[in-house]
Amino acid sequence: MAARVTLQTIADRVGVSRMTVSNAFSKPDQLSASLRERILAAAQEVGYVGPDPTARALAKGTTGAVGIVLTSSLRFAFTDPVATSFLGAIAEQLGPTGLALTLLTSSDEGEVVPARDVAIDGALIYSCDPTSLAVQYLTRRRLPLVYIDQTPVDGIAAVNVDDRAGARAAAQHLIDLGHRRIGLLMSGVHGRHGLIGPEDVTVDGHASAQRLLGWRDALDAAGIVPLMARQDGSVLELAKAGARLLLDRPDRPTAILCFSDAVAYGALQVAEELGISVPAQLSIVGFDDSPLATQIRPALTTVRQDVVAKGRVAAEALNAAIEDTRAGRTVTAEHVVLPTELVVRGSTAPPPA
Rank of each mutant, 00 (worst) to 15 (best):
E273C: 06
V16C: 08
L40Q: 11
V118R: 05
V16R: 02
A59P: 15
L70T: 08
N23G: 02
A229F: 05
T9E: 09
D29A: 15
A89H: 09
K27A: 15
N160Q: 12
G178Q: 03
R304H: 13
V159G: 12
R230I: 11
T79Q: 13
G15W: 06
P28L: 01
L104D: 00
S72F: 08
I125L: 15
G15I: 13
F76Q: 04
H206T: 03
A43R: 13
A158Y: 03
I148T: 14
S132Y: 03
G64Q: 10
G110Q: 09
Q136M: 01
R18E: 06
A115D: 06
V331W: 08
Q150R: 09
F86D: 08
R168C: 09
V278I: 06
H206M: 01
G328D: 05
L268R: 02
S347P: 00
A349G: 02
L58T: 11
V16P: 00
T302A: 12
A280L: 06
S234F: 12
P130L: 00
T54Q: 12
L245G: 02
V159K: 12
R141E: 00
P51T: 00
L195A: 06
G183E: 03
V263E: 04
Y265F: 15
R38E: 13
P298Y: 07
R141S: 02
T139Q: 06
P351D: 07
R297E: 08
R192M: 05
A169D: 13
D80A: 00
A321H: 14
Q269R: 13
V189S: 10
L292D: 02
D29G: 11
S260C: 07
S17D: 10
V49F: 02
